[in-house]
């Protein structure tokens, strides 16, 4: 099979899994799509409400709602991609029954699905806020798009590693949750890097996810700049995790049992 023909087949397969995923994830319940929106919306409103209650203000030039939303959506996009891609083979193993479907297709389709979902969630939540406040200014739209895309890539690459580990050992698979959960607190949902003490900033910057949040915020708010974003550092993480994930996939490929 030529490379071009192979790519056509792969895109057909990924498209098919993507479409099927929309049915199995959201199609089961009434207003299933609403849950995708409601989940982050509840978190944003809770935290924003808490901030208002303790009279803590968002950083200069940001409103609390947008501040939290621009932090939580890149984080959720990352975490959800890592989680969903990580379970893609164990959760959709039956599809490997079709010889055309490869493990990597299951992973890619889920990664794209998360990106599409959270991309839409971002547009809807920020759009609603814009409508409510009668004000919608985006400083650098391309930065926002780049931040979300990189969060998706980082999550998908992490998911590839989890996925291969999950096939090798169910025990190691259980470590995934505890590994991911602390990231919620250190990924810039509640703070910007600029608001941190000077000596803590480089430390916080070691966490690749924070660069995604910083990118989105610097693109969204006129008053915030991308001073603390290191794109090459972020890309290095994505590249490294992808290489490790794909190498592990080659190792476990023959171990995946269909029936």
């Amino acid at each position: 099979m030529s490379l071009l023909r192979g790519l056509v087949v792969q895109s057909e397969v990924v498209h098919a899994i993507f479409m099927r995923e929309t049915r199995t994830r959201f199609g089961q319940y009434r207003m299933g799509y609403l849950w995708a929106i409601a989940d982050p919306a509840i978190v944003i409103l809770t935290i924003a409400g808490f901030f208002a209650l303790v009279k803590r203000a968002a950083p200069y030039g940001m409103d609390i709602y947008s501040f939290i939303a621009t932090g939580i959506i890149p984080y959720k996009l990352f975490a959800s991609s890592a989680q969903q891609v990580g379970e893609s083979v164990n959760g959709n193993r039956a599809l490997l029954f079709y010889p055309r479907v490869l493990p990597i297709d299951l992973a890619l389709a889920r990664g794209l699905f998360e990106l599409a979902t959270y991309g839409a969630v971002f547009v809807v939540l920020m759009g609603l806020h814009g409508l409510a406040t009668q004000r919608l200014v985006v400083d650098e739209p391309l930065y926002v798009i780049a931040g979300l895309t990189l969060a998706s890539l980082l999550g998908t690459a992490t998911g590839l590693v989890f996925c291969a580990i999950g096939v090798m050992s169910r025990t190691a698979d259980r470590a995934r949750g505890p590994l991911l959960r602390p990231l919620f607190w250190i990924s810039g949902i509640f703070f910007t890097v600029e608001a941190l003490p000077v000596h803590v900033r480089p430390l916080a910057g070691l966490n690749p996810i924070i660069h995604c949040a910083e990118l989105v915020r610097s693109g969204w708010f006129v008053s915030y700049e991308d001073t603390y974003v290191d794109t090459s550092y972020l890309l290095l993480w994505i590249l490294g995790l992808s290489v490790v994930g794909l190498l592990l996939e080659r190792r476990v490929r023959r171990k995946i049992e269909v029936a």
Binding site: E12, V13, H15, A16, M19, R20, R23, Q28, Y98
Partner: peptide, 18 residues
């Protein structure tokens, strides 16, 4: 590899796409 919660028709659509 039929998905139990999808209909026969939806499963066919999936295979046709693949």
């Amino acid at each position: 590899a039929f998905h139990g919660s999808l209909t026969g028709e939806e499963n066919c659509r999936f295979a046709a796409r693949i």
